[in-house]
Each structure stands twice: as structure tokens, then as C-alpha cells.
Design a binder for these strands. Structure first.
Lengths: 209, 209
DNA sequence: AAGATATCTGTACGGCGCTTAGATATGAAA
DNA sequence: TTTCATATCTAAGCGCCGTACAGATATCTT
């Protein structure tokens, strides 16, 4: 967890309670799961009174929003790394695998991310390319790199959304026991993920590495 | 809502409080959304004391489970109707559209269904064909009808899972405002859904496998 | 040094999930 | 029909929750 106590934001009593609260929330989330994430528990974990968080967040939802925001940043980073590590036509499936693995390795955080997004009916992804490229744009750019026509804007957007749907859908499904047997018969979780992606016409038949 | 007050289950005071509670929960869910679904509120809606539900459900999760169960049955019905109404190679995409439309038309119920499933780490779908065919099996059977090799069991299962991932992913994504502009430029929600499905190599407009 | 302001504590309110004890209605046995 | 066990429901209460508010305290500005 980063500290980020720069010169222009040096608060009063605690040092940086806002930061401490988000960190405490993420600690609780990892240790106890989303259902344990009460505002009071977070305040307790941070060592302050139950009312203290209200000086930094309008309500509980705003705290969770801050947690979710860090989750999306982590996801962006994971996918950036995956894209950089893969070569050519495997880049897209590498992004998909990275997405699903992020969800598998951070299930509680992933849940908070989408719960917060649903509350606002908006994914916190930039569909325009910005300074820091969102994971969504990485997928779209990769499609262009692999030969999609960048001037067919609507089609490109649809293909990107389709890929995102596939990733999210598989991320949610992969956690169910229903598919344990199938996973085992394929030799583990990763072959399973790759096989499902292969069936979703977006991803090239790639060699499991 | 069915009554189902048969001879062997004719309870004591209320008549059928269990039934009444599930109905009250679904009424609340539709009217106020999932966050309003407290056990006490359900009891209030049904006109009984806050402790009464505990004689019919172990805890809140078990009540929500009963609600979720009815949701899966509704989904099965909707997809059976869609499959019956479609012809030939359009059957699969009809199933996909029906799935997404169910989620769009019953967002709170759909949420409860998957929340309950995640808690148990198991989707309440029969992967074997049973007396009442689950929606999942309908998808798989349709794939066989459209030419998939039923003896390639692993491959068939993978294709079915891929389709389910696509449906679920799109169902969750379609609710976000992010894509409103794109939907509009395609002439509405349904063309948007069909276009995304088309990009997910499973559905006609192109040839499956 | 003094006032304004931001931060945090203490306390309180109503609602929640759930437990327990006791009241009441029902079905079975006498 | 009376009796009794049992199933059902109510009343009350516990600890936790999100949140509001008043007051104390530390920091910033002047």
C-alpha cells in the first residue's frame, strides 16, 4: 500500500486519515470479505471513532467508491503488465487471462468494484484514450494492433465491449464449483480459462505456455 | 404467483406464511430494490412480527435463497419460450437475447439470484438433463441441434459455458450508461445486444465453429 | 495572540439480524 | 371430548449497523 503523503496534502490530526481509512478498508476486505466491510469496522481498524470517517467521506458508499477506484487502478496495472509481456496475436488472450486472474485473486475487491459501478450505473472506465490508458482502451488498442480496422469505430467499440463482456462473464463464472470437474479434466484452471476464451470467437487459438 | 396450497402442506395459523413471505420479498424487491430487502421489512410487508420468518427459514440468506430459486425458474421459463419461438440457426441468439432481457427486466431479482449463487459458490443449474430442463441445458441442447458434435463432451460443455459467460457478461454490462450513446447510434437496445452477440463468435450472422 | 476552521470524540437514534421466553392455535392420543 | 405435544406466532431484548449532532481539540491564518 502506498503512502503518498505529499507536501500539498498534509492534514491535521491523524496525518492522513482518508488514506488510512481506505487502507484499513482494503485490509478488512482481504481478511474478512465484503460483508465485514462496515464503516464502524473500518474506523475501528484505523483506530478512530465511528464518526471520524464522515469528515472525509459523505457516507459509506463514498468510502467504498474510493476503495473501488484503487481496485480499477490495480486492474489497469495488471492488464498493462500482461499486455507488455505478451507478443503479437496472443496479446488479446493475455489481456483476457489477466483480467480473469485479477478477479480470481481479488474476489472481494472485484465485487466492491462492480457493486459501486452498478450503484452509479457507470463503469469508471475512460472510453476515450487519456493520459493513463484505461484497461478498456488497452483492449481496444490491442484489437487494432491485431488488425481491426480503427476507422470502423462502431464495430471496434462493439468488439471491445464483447471482449469485456466475455472477460467479466468468465470472471464471475470461474468461481463456481459447477465447473471444478471440467477444470480438472482440462488440467487446471488456466487451461480451462484459455479453452473458454478460445470458444469466444474473439481470441485466437493460442498455445498454452 | 402460484398458490400451491395442497393437502399435505396446510399450515396452522397464517395459512402459508412461507409462501406469503417469499411473495412479499419479491414484491419489495420489485418496488424498492435489493437494498430494501430486510427480513424485518419482509415480515412487515407480510403482516407478521419480525421473528415469525425464523419458523420457516433458518436465516435471511435462506429466505433470499427461496426468492432466488423462483428467479431461476422464471429464467428457465423465459428461455424455454424463446427457444420454442425461434427457428433453426437463430435459436441460439434468441436464447441469448432472452437471457439478457430477463436480466434487464428483473434487475433486482437477477442480482439476488447471483448473490445467492456466489454465497454457495454454486450455480443452481443442473448440468445433467433432468425432468425439467434447466436453461443451461437448453443452451447446450441447442448447440447440438445446430450441429455441434454431442460426442465431444468436453468441447460441448466448454461451448455452453462460453455462451453462458457471454450472456451473463452482456447482461451485466448492458445496464451501464457508458454504452448509451453506442446503443442509440445502433437504433436501440436490441440491435446493440444482437451486435455484441454477433461479435462473440457463438451466434449466427456468422457460422458457429 | 486570537479568531476561524478543520478534525476528531461522545453520545444518541432508529433499523437491522437474530435469540429467547412465553402465548396461542392446531393435530394426535387418550 | 379432553389432554397433551407440537407447530406457529408475538413481545422483548441484544449487539451491531449507518448516520447525525454537539462539543472538544488541534491546526491554519492573521
Amino acid at each position: 500500500m502506498s503512502e503518498a503523503k505529499s507536501a500539498e496534502s498534509r492534514p491535521y490530526h491523524h496525518g492522513d486519515l482518508r488514506r488510512a481509512l481506505v487502507d484499513a478498508a482494503r485490509r478488512l476486505l482481504e481478511a474478512e470479505g465484503p460483508s465485514a466491510l462496515s464503516l464502524r469496522a473500518v474506523a475501528r481498524e484505523a483506530g478512530v471513532s465511528p464518526a471520524a470517517p464522515y469528515h472525509h467521506f459523505k457516507d459509506k458508499a463514498e468510502l467504498l467508491d474510493a476503495v473501488a477506484h484503487e481496485g480499477w487502478e490495480l486492474l489497469d496495472g495488471a492488464m498493462a503488465a500482461a499486455k507488455a509481456a505478451a507478443e503479437g496475436p496472443q496479446k488479446l488472450s493475455a489481456l483476457g487471462i489477466a483480467y480473469v486472474c485479477f478477479a480470481r485473486d481479488n474476489p472481494a475487491l472485484y465485487r466492491v468494484m462492480y457493486d459501486a459501478a452498478r450503484d452509479k450505473e457507470a463503469l469508471p472506465i475512460d472510453m476515450q484514450n487519456g493520459e493513463k490508458e484505461s484497461a478498456y482502451c488497452k483492449v481496444r488498442d490491442t484489437m487494432v494492433e491485431l488488425g481491426a480496422d480503427p476507422t470502423a469505430e462502431v464495430d471496434l467499440e462493439l468488439a471491445t465491449i464483447a471482449a469485456w463482456c466475455a472477460g467479466h462473464g468468465l470472471a464471475e463464472m470461474a468461481g463456481f464449483r459447477q465447473f471444478d470437474q471440467l477444470k480438472a479434466s482440462l488440467g487446471g484452471e488456466r487451461p480451462f480459462l484459455e479453452a473458454v476464451f478460445t470458444h469466444l470467437g474473439l481470441f485466437p487459438q493460442h498455445t498454452p505456455r
